[in-house]
Write a protein that binds this DNA or RNA. Sequence first.
DNA 1: CTTCATGTAACTTAGTTAGTTACGATTGGC
DNA 2: GCCAATCGTAACTAACTAAGTTACATGAAG
Lengths: 149, 149
Amino acid sequence: MKRNSRLSSTLHILVHMAEKPEQALTSEQLATFIHTNPVVVRRTIAGLRDAGIVTSSRGHGGGWLLGRAPEKISLAEISVALGETLLPFSTEPESPGCLVEQAVIAVLDDFRIAAEKLLAEKLSRITLADLTADFRRRFDLIGVSSHAV
Amino acid sequence: MKRNSRLSSTLHILVHMAEKPEQALTSEQLATFIHTNPVVVRRTIAGLRDAGIVTSSRGHGGGWLLGRAPEKISLAEISVALGETLLPFSTEPESPGCLVEQAVIAVLDDFRIAAEKLLAEKLSRITLADLTADFRRRFDLIGVSSHAV
DNA sequence: CTTCATGTAACTTAGTTAGTTACGATTGGC
DNA sequence: GCCAATCGTAACTAACTAAGTTACATGAAG
């Protein structure tokens, strides 16, 4: 699992879970999908459990299941649950009292707030169901079921 | 200079330069504005010079000047010249051949491309002149000229 | 020809995050 | 009741990134 790929890795995992809605998948299994180890998976998607996007159960036959239907899970929610920021730059003051900095931060903050709202809206219109539909289209076209390396 | 503040730090510097259009400012002077050292400043804004946003000259009386009028310098250009990415997540394949990953990346890439276009458009409508105007408004209101710590 | 400035390479330091190890807690099967 | 499977989580390590620093070569002005 590379850096900055938490969103795509998590989506990868969730699509696999959506494809096996009856079967709890273990962290171990999920980890193999994204080439990492079980602890990283648990840590990464812990926030999704808190948000009700997935559920986990311990012991024999335990593992992870979607918390609700894929149509009801938006990328916006997933992104928030992962604790991801939508924009990479900060606007925190470093020279309190400097009017130049205040002007820069004011303009940048206006932009940031508007931009985050826009992006969140766009992401809220994409659901996990859209991803599984895209996957199934590809699957029907190519007809390969195995998870490639 | 904190992490992820390259854009705001650079804007801070540029507004100061715009306020002294006749006077070349040294890396040393620019560095004090953003509490860092001259080498970091040169390295950070080297890309702006390549983009024609600023010019630099060496030797006695040398330093940095804006390359053109503040009205002609957009935040979009500055962001590109800094080599900043507008969105923080990657969509690089880690499991080539996996159809699930392909579906995830396809959807995410569509989003990323549309989002970057939107953000770039928004940023291209904000110019350095907007920032200096905001600064002057604050300055006129409060009437403090010194650069605070 | 000395001084002031940038340009840049090389190294150091600090911070972040993935990866790993370890172990406790919980669950189900026998 | 006991054992094995599984998650939850803390603590540590390793790898990577970016800022900070040092050093020195280059070039311009007087």
